[in-house]
Simulated assay, not measured.
Amino acid sequence: MPSGISDAERYLPPEVARSVKILVVGAFGVGKTTLIGAVSEIPPLSTEEVMTAASIGVDSLLGLASKRTTTVAMDFGRLTVGEDVALYLFGAPGQRRFWDLWEGLAEGAAGALVLVDTRRLEDSFEVFDQLERYPELPIVVAVNEFPDSPRYSVDSVRKALDLLPETPVITCDARERASSAGALSTLVEYALSFPTKASV
């Protein structure tokens, strides 16, 4: 733990009465680690490793020329919402070979924030296929707006991803704390209204 972190920042305040587990998912390189790092009020846990030659031809770097690392287990962070709710954020790896980890990470989650990148929207199809294994899990889709991403309307993204009409689709910038926190707040609000998550 960095020495610059005070006890007040490290520990939950006594007013926090509820904790909520949130899953952050998406395809390889969509910004999951960045989002958790941007919002976490504690130093985030990251299991990023340097990409090796073994990933050549397996992990597409199209649009990700500067990417040198990838998450191999999970990311973890914490965000207090309002005065009495703490969100525990679990970022799941995007590549198919790590999807066995999803089962444990999804257990007990109140909802999932699904990050997508409009430069590589087709990479998200398999992620949504994987999410179908968890029909009880409310999801919110967040379009991470990279500087060079083409901009599309929410309706266009919804149609391209073949999402249900009631699935919220929003935009965010995973690098910015306020934008990322807003996306997570949208998910919490949606999870509270979801029939099977009424007790969140």
Rank of each mutant, 00 (worst) to 15 (best):
V116K: 04
L101A: 06
R133P: 04
E136Y: 05
A73H: 09
L137E: 10
Q130V: 03
F98T: 04
L61I: 11
E83V: 11
T69Q: 14
L113Q: 08
D75G: 03
V85E: 07
D123M: 03
L121A: 01
D129S: 13
T69P: 03
L79Q: 07
T70L: 12
V72P: 00
R120W: 12
V114W: 04
P138V: 06
V81F: 03
G104A: 05
E103P: 01
D117Q: 11
A112N: 06
L113F: 06
W102V: 03
G91V: 02
V127L: 07
R97S: 06
E107M: 14
E83Y: 04
L101R: 08
Q95L: 13
E132W: 02
R133K: 13
F98N: 00
Y134I: 10
L62A: 13
R120I: 15
T69H: 10
Y88Q: 14
L87N: 06
V127F: 02
W102T: 07
R97L: 13
K67T: 12
E136S: 13
V72N: 00
L101F: 03
F98S: 07
A110T: 05
Y134P: 03
V114M: 08
L115R: 00
Y134K: 07
I139F: 05
F125I: 14
P93Y: 03
R120G: 09
F125L: 12
G108T: 08
E122S: 15
T118C: 13
G111F: 12
F90T: 09
L113G: 01
L105Y: 06
L131R: 06
T71L: 04
D100T: 12
D84G: 10
D123R: 12
P138N: 13
V81I: 15
G63P: 13
G63D: 11
S60R: 08
L113S: 09
R133F: 12
T70Y: 00
W99M: 07
R68S: 10
L105C: 04
P93M: 00
T69Y: 04
V127T: 09
L131Q: 02
F90C: 14
L115W: 05
V85W: 07
R120S: 11
E132R: 15
V127N: 01
E136W: 13
E122C: 03
A109N: 06
A86L: 01
S124G: 06
A92D: 01
Q95C: 03
